[in-house]
């Protein structure tokens, strides 16, 4: 099963719309509720990141009986120091992002805690690609 979602630049009002859709699909597939929660929390944090830092992007979702793979690609500024970005508390978020209840430097660590595989490819000035896998 393959799905794609577009995340628009600065579209905070719709942050979470893709995660919400994925949650409903996984529920229909009768996936374990704890697994669904792990998937949607990781995707939601990644969605917020794409809106907050990267002018939006595209989400590619593949589901089979073994698990779900979600890849989020953006053409944003890239992450200059990935090790630093993975640390809890490090953030480059704007005031706007903080007003939305995010921007405390917990996004990437939260993603890591909820997935079975996380692969981040990033290049300054080119963009970032985050691949996440949760096994069922």
């Amino acid at each position: 099963m393959h799905f794609e979602y577009t995340i628009l630049d600065n579209d905070f009002a719709n942050a979470g719309a893709a995660s919400s859709s994925i949650k409903k699909i996984l529920k229909q597939l009768n996936i374990d509720a704890k697994k669904i929660k792990r998937v949607v929390i990781a995707v939601y944090e990644a969605e917020v990141n794409a809106i907050a830092h990267a002018n939006g992007g595209t989400i590619y979702v593949d589901i089979d009986d073994k698990g779900i793979e979600v890849t989020i690609k953006d053409s944003g500024p890239g992450i200059a120091d990935l090790d630093l970005a993975m640390q809890v508390g490090y953030s480059t978020a704007s005031q706007k992002v903080r007003e939305m209840g995010f921007g405390a430097g917990m996004g990437l660590p939260n993603i890591k805690n909820n997935v079975d595989l996380l692969d981040i490819k990033t290049e300054v000035g080119v963009g970032t690609q985050i691949k996440m896998v949760v096994n069922f």
Partner: peptide, 9 residues
Amino acid sequence: IQTIRTAEM
């Protein structure tokens, strides 16, 4: 709206 979205997730 993110308060509601977060609660949903």
